[in-house]
Amino acid sequence: MRKIGLLFILISFSTGISAQLIREIKLNYSSSNDHYFVVEPKGNIQGALVLLPGSYQEAESIFPETKLHNVAYLHNLLVVAFTCGKTKAYIDDQTLENIDTVLDHVIKTFHVPKDKFAIGGYSAGGVIALTYAEHCKQYPHKAVINPQAVFTADSPVDLVDVWYTFNREVEKNFSEAAMNEAKAFLKTMKEDLNGTPHTNLENYIKHSPFYSKADDGGNAKYLLQTAVRLYHDPDILWQLKNRRRSLFDMNILCASAMVNYLLLQGNEKAELMIADRPGTRSDGFRHPHSWSIIEEVDCILWIKKSLGIE
């Protein structure tokens, strides 16, 4: 059993209603998950919301980009944020162990029941959130938590499709930012997943939240009883102009297929959420791939309903 110590770093910020604290909790061992951040609610903790950042991002990058933690504070939800390995867009054994360790510590420290958790993430963080929720449902006897709700902010859900999408980005050679991301992830995926979908399709399906060509949806079949929301800003005109992407290159295509699969299997709690406002980064830059596509109040109320909290 790892020995865990605590180091608290307090960062205050104003919501216009009351001051809140983002606490960094340092875990006393060497790992990519050697710390996590929490925002404790205004009243007694009734549940927990786990937030995961995108690739190459620190956990603290979440807080300027969304007000989910502000709204959760007012609704008695503990917010937990941590990084799952900066280059990860899927869960391997080490990442799974790291997530389990953090959440086990959260339960013991803040006394949150294991069935009062929701988990969500942005971009690659959303892939990990979905995959982790699926893992918990597939192996309930050894799962640290029993998440009742899972959501994503413009995340890809089919790793096989991601492989081909990234290859098209490289071939187009239009957006330097998109092309650099594609090259980096193609290299990482080939190394981590031991090949390509051509040479090791089974491993891609194993690590993917959803596989659109499988009758059983791949790992999505483990979410048939779970509340699922996949948030997207389907601004095709922005994508055509700024990235030269068609609908076939956008994350929403496979997301809609995943939600449709869940609905067909009887999960009426599965939803494709279309942004009610244009995605915008905290610096004011317009981008559909943003945390801000999630309407925070509605999302928190959905989480409370999913957790059975009044």
Score class of each variant (00 low, 15 high):
D276H: 14
D92H: 01
F82D: 01
A143K: 11
P147M: 14
D104W: 10
E271P: 01
T15K: 07
L7R: 12
A149P: 03
P53G: 01
D235R: 02
K26N: 05
A133C: 14
H141T: 13
H105M: 01
N267L: 09
N260H: 05
E271I: 06
K241E: 11
D215A: 15
F151A: 11
L193P: 07
F117I: 00
A255R: 03
K206Y: 15
E40H: 10
V297K: 11
D298R: 15
P53R: 00
Y29E: 05
E296Y: 02
G5S: 13
S31L: 03
R243G: 00
A133T: 15
A178N: 10
A129V: 02
I22E: 11
P234D: 07
R229M: 07
V38M: 03
G266W: 04
P234F: 00
S61P: 03
L224E: 12
L49I: 01
S282N: 12
G47N: 04
H287R: 07
V71A: 01
K86V: 08
A118Y: 06
A257S: 14
N76R: 03
N167F: 01
D235I: 01
C84Y: 15
I62K: 11
K26S: 06
N200W: 01
A182F: 08
S31D: 12
K67L: 11
T15M: 06
L201A: 03
H105V: 00
N200F: 02
E65T: 07
W291I: 01
I294V: 09
A227G: 03
D249G: 04
G43C: 06
I274T: 07
L247G: 14
I99N: 09
K172D: 10
F110L: 00
A133Q: 09
I91N: 08
T280A: 10
S212V: 02
Q57S: 13
V150C: 13
L263W: 08
G126L: 03
F8W: 11
S208H: 07
K114W: 00
H141L: 13
P140A: 11
E296L: 04
Y222A: 12
A133R: 08
L223N: 04
E295V: 10
I205K: 11
M189F: 15
I91Q: 09
